[in-house]
Amino acid sequence: MASYYVIILAIGQGAALLLLAPLASGFSRVLRAKIHTRTGPPLLQDYRDIFKLLKRQEIVPKGAGLIFRAMPFILMATLLLIAMSMPVLTLASPLSAVGNMFTFVCLLALVRFFFSLSGVDSGSTFAGLGASRETTMCTLMEPVILLALFVAALLAGSTDLGRISVSFASPSQGLIAAELAVTAAIAFAAFVEMGKVPFDMAEAEQELQEGPLTEYSGPGLALLKWSVRLKQLVMASFLIGVFLPYGAAASPSAATLLWAAVVFLIKLVVVFVVVAVIENSVARNRFFMTSHSTWIGFGVAALALVFYLVGL
């Protein structure tokens, strides 16, 4: 693979995910309305929301500092870097110098650090509580993601996301039970990271007025809404690209990439339908009960480790 080819792939992938993100969330909203048997917003509503917000005046709360102002930019840049570095259409990572499982986890920590800090920085009670919850959720989820990815890396013999993807693309290698458990744990983690209903603790619309987003307005809110949607799409693509990579291009050419894109979109639709069904059929828990369900996730990841150790 020539290096300029990789650069184009990385940039194209980042740009495509960024542009698709509002569409994916619009699709979620349409599905949600369908499940509620109401008309709901049109599919492209989220684009309109974002562009409308871009024209609005920005209102900054009194005590807010630089972190509050800078966060939307940092958030989007970091998520774009994640989007560029993980394998989506190809089995190999377009940016292998960034596409490493530990780097991926630490980049998510970067997102979280500024997202929660801006919540406290805004000086709003709701945003502060949202920040506290966001970081608590991460404490509960980080071991799940890390352990599941760790077992996946052990199965692949490498911590490179591209190589993990390659090993998951060929299930003939054995250890099916471990692979299934890992995929289940990652799917769970991706669902939690998407901030969907039983786990929308930080932005809980009904109780916390969207948490760290409370005080944002105008272009800042536009960027932030876009980034939150991008994060949802990135998590779904991460699950598909690394753990369900059937159909992804092993050796990139125009034809294989086109086919991979079609397969990827179909898988994405399936994932979003499943997510929509789950989020609309469960109720929210009390915040302190969340740890009960996240421990199940950790249990599945630990099970994957056990399966790996005994060679199932």
């Binding site: 871009l54 920005e58 209102i59 900054v60 709360p61 840049a77 409370t214």
Partner: peptide, 30 residues
């Protein structure tokens, strides 16, 4: 890359910069 990618949100925010009123700083929190 992180520094370079920060240009993307800057460009997005710059889209309607001229039509947008200047930011109001100093509002009370909700």
């Amino acid at each position: 890359l992180l520094m370079g990618l920060a240009a993307v949100p800057l460009v997005i925010v710059g889209l309607y910069a001229r039509r947008r009123p200047r930011p109001y700083v100093g509002a009370e929190v909700w």
